[in-house]
Design a binder for these strands. Structure first.
Length: 210
DNA sequence: TACCCGATTTACT
DNA sequence: GTAAATCGGGTAT
């Protein structure tokens, strides 16, 4: 599969100037960190992505796509830039951004956002939150705060008319150097050694410290 | 058709 | 720190 990425990996070195469209076709473990600092908008609500995890599909035992496509995971085998939403523990919705080229499964789990707009609506859907930094500080919390549910599964995030949109704010700066925190993924039992959790270092809205 | 379990959150001890 | 809540998909009957 690596041949499918050779072209993309070289281009992602200058990712900050690329279109999101081509960026998302790259390898999940590289795309993930590049999503930090981008904005996710659902209606009136917006959040800055501050924590993510990469899941590399067929070659990643921890990925839902590791055993091939199913009715649930099929979206991850399609074109990049779409939203993959699944139910965790029968309770919480979790959202991923599909990446890799069309036909090659891969995704980036959204783990935390910093509220930017529509904060009143977020509080209404996160009644148990005690502080603003608790509103989106986890993959399930993030979906509740932004109002993301299975209704949004398969949405094209780059379509301006879509109910959920991913975009680069005018003041965006790549998160790297000392601002980039890296660590092992959370809550998995396979491939636990892969350091594919990325975050904005010391950001108060993280799901947990690195 | 049955059983098992999970990319979690929350409340309670 | 620990356990309960809750349900769809995967794997085995």
């Amino acid at each position: 599969m690596s041949a499918a990425f050779d072209r993309h990996d070289t281009r992602t070195s200058e990712a900050s100037t690329q279109d999101l469209d081509s960026l998302l076709a790259g390898r999940a473990s590289i795309v993930a960190r590049l999503l930090l600092g981008l904005t996710l908008t659902v209606g009136e609500r917006s959040g800055r992505i501050v924590e993510v995890e990469a899941y590399e599909g067929t070659d990643d035992p921890a990925s839902h796509a590791s055993r091939g496509p199913t009715p649930r995971t099929g979206i991850m085998f399609g074109p990049p830039g779409r939203l993959y939403v699944y139910l965790s523990y029968g309770v919480h919705w979790c959202a991923n951004i599909v990446c890799h080229p069309d036909g090659v499964a891969g995704a980036v789990l959204l783990r935390a956002v910093e509220p930017l707009a529509g904060v009143d609506e977020m509080w209404a859907d996160r009644p148990s939150a005690k502080r603003e930094r608790d509103l989106g500080s986890g993959p399930g919390k993030l979906c509740a705060a932004l109002g993301i549910t299975s209704d949004h599964n398969g949405v094209d995030l780059l379509d301006e008319r879509a109910p959920v949109r991913l975009w680069r704010p005018a003041d965006h700066r790549p998160v790297d150097g000392g601002d980039l925190a890296v660590g092992p993924r959370v809550g998995i039992s396979k491939a636990v050694d892969r350091p594919w959790r990325f975050g904005v270092a010391d950001n108060p809205h993280l799901s947990r410290p690195f």
